[in-house]
Design a protein around this nucleic acid. Sequence first.
DNA 1: CATGAATTTCAGAAATTACTGAAAACTGCG
DNA 2: CGCAGTTTTCAGTAATTTCTGAAATTCATG
Lengths: 189, 189
Amino acid sequence: MQDHLIREFMLHFGEMGSRWGINRTVGQIYAVLFLSEAPLCADDLVTVTGFSRSNVSMGLKELQGWNLVSIRRIEGDRRDYFATPEDMWKIVRTLIAERKKREIDPTLSKLRELELSTRSESYSARRLTELREMIETMTEFYEEMNRIETKRLVALMKAGNRIGRLVGKTGQIIPFGRQRSDEAEEAGG
Amino acid sequence: MQDHLIREFMLHFGEMGSRWGINRTVGQIYAVLFLSEAPLCADDLVTVTGFSRSNVSMGLKELQGWNLVSIRRIEGDRRDYFATPEDMWKIVRTLIAERKKREIDPTLSKLRELELSTRSESYSARRLTELREMIETMTEFYEEMNRIETKRLVALMKAGNRIGRLVGKTGQIIPFGRQRSDEAEEAGG
DNA sequence: CATGAATTTCAGAAATTACTGAAAACTGCG
DNA sequence: CGCAGTTTTCAGTAATTTCTGAAATTCATG
């Protein structure tokens, strides 16, 4: 019924796919599944996207590798059906976790490995250490945030500018009620 | 001097480049600049990477498009020299801002456009609205975080598990000293 | 354990992207 | 202006990635 919407979004997601490190096929398949209330089978996706059956199969495989779709079986139907999670925040968590795994973790490993294999005090060695430390700070923060249940996480994000006020330059959590101005805390520390 | 380090890191970054939506050339060039204390000129990069002069030129152009390198002039030398910021956190901010611009913003625009052009109450329409709202929540949070000066931001990130405790399920900031357990706050609300 | 529907694999074709060398276009300087 | 050094452009080639159809495999079911 809202065919235009689905089609437009599917094409857009396909285009974006290339910027996201997945390809057009995968992007389009995901978009269609994402907008479908009922799970879809591979043939449905062939019909909607116009890709070959084998291409759809590979795309679905890749999406499963990303943990972005789940397989469902339908009573008395031998085909596999695919669906995305209802919960949008679950999707985003998965996406971030998978991108981290692919884009950050290998570099972190490499940095650790390089640090172990050298005893240099050169600029480049120091720079690599600094990079590793920064990545560790960020990933630890990410892991901390990711531990928070969704309701609270959303509340935290919506707390907006109150967040920045909570932390002084030295990292202490500023007691509630003393977050009015930057100076107040400076004077107190 | 620490040639091995530079070489290994350069090759690794080149490989990773493809996962990051930049290509091998760009990744390697960036890696070398990142590890170099002094700015380098294009010919230096040709020597180190082994790429053709024109390829290096294009790679540098792309890095400039990402705001990841700056041009420096050296007294009495007509060549352009290139450098990355000393400040690691500045680099990461740039990287995130640029990825957001390329990977998020176009989709946000498209979602807004699609919402304006339809009056449907279908599942897919609702799903798109929910997606837009989620992206807006996240980008607004990002913008808030990005407004915080680096020292504080790092302190905040290192505050670790204290952060999650600060926010109740309804989004209120919990007074300091009452963050001990999940139940305490539940009882108080 | 045979059947046939459904899925996956895979080799090659098609499309896209990366890379190069040569030529053109800058740029500061005598 | 004209020259030499430097950078950029661009058309063609190389390399990689995506996509397909056909064949092989899997698997629930009789």
